[in-house]
Design a binder for these strands. Structure first.
Lengths: 161, 161
DNA sequence: TTCAATGCAAAAAATTTGCATCCCA
DNA sequence: TGGGATGCAAATTTTTTGCATTGAA
């Protein structure tokens, strides 16, 4: 959850893998852990621009950085439910969490922790490995429903269409 | 799971909502329930073409049909992990299932049933509703890991990059 | 017969890539 | 200093839309 620490650790990881720590990469690693929800590449780019005066960071570099981080297993793509793909810090650096997705307005929020208990998780893992010849490494739970604003109040859709 | 029945029921639903049952719509409702994994619009279009001699179904119509079915709650988008968006029959018509996603090759397979027990599900639902002012309607679980072919054998990535 | 729905082509949105230049290690 | 990384612009890929025509009710 601590943003500065996470950023530092990720930066170290990128360096250790033999990649250079450049301006665009530093900013992506700065912006991504700070958000409480998955971000699109355009979101990341916008946030970087708003906190920089000096040099210009191109959209292409954000794409390239996100793809690099995907390859390194630092970032993962979460479901794009219309609109552009969204990304978040994943794996050991992400902090285990899941998503609340409002079916009305498309808003995505993080839900810390995991409603799937450890025992259930292990049992399921074993069962799947046995019956499907598939080794489960990680899981990702989406809770679909209606957010507070949409339940009463009526709220405009923020994504797509 | 029964494909013909599902297709018929969905066709009826589309008609009842006041929409016309046309050639492109019939074919999308025919192809989608028959697949054991979510399909991209291009996938659907390709499968339609391969089973038709007579008239031509345009890609645009497949997009329009999928969007209609999304609005009707018949279809839902899942698991765009790079590459185009993928769709499947959802809600009461889909049959409750989740997905196995191979992190090596990108393959997506259906996993019938739900490893999250009913009791756990209800408890989680209550907890989320209380602590987050969010009403959970549905859930979607992705199991990420390594498929059989990738574990041993080494297999090329089928999606993206 | 009527107007929703289609096919086609063009437009828009999202993402990737070629290449000359720049700058981190 | 050398080669990986960048910015820019052009190219691809994915999705949407305008419009004349078609066809389901």
């Amino acid at each position: 959850m601590e943003t500065p620490d996470t950023t530092t650790a990720l930066g170290a990881l990128v360096s250790e893998q033999g990649y250079r720590m450049t301006t665009p990469r530093r900013h992506v690693l700065d912006v991504l852990p700070a958000s409480g929800a998955p971000l699109s590449v355009a979101d990341i780019h916008e946030r970087i621009r708003s906190r920089i005066r000096s040099r210009r960071v191109s959209l292409a570099s954000v794409y390239r950085t996100v793809n690099l981080l995907l390859r390194l297993g630092v970032v993962r793509a979460t479901d794009a439910v219309g609109g552009p793909q969204r990304f978040e810090i994943g794996g050991p650096f992400g902090g285990h969490h899941h998503h609340l997705i409002c079916q009305q307005c498309g808003r995505i929020e993080d839900l810390d922790g995991c409603p799937l208990g450890d025992a259930a998780w292990q049992a399921m893992n074993r069962r799947v490995r046995r019956t499907r010849k598939f080794r489960v490494v990680d899981h990702d739970l989406r809770l679909l429903g209606a957010c507070h604003e949409c339940t009463k109040g009526r709220r405009a859709r923020t994504t797509r269409r």
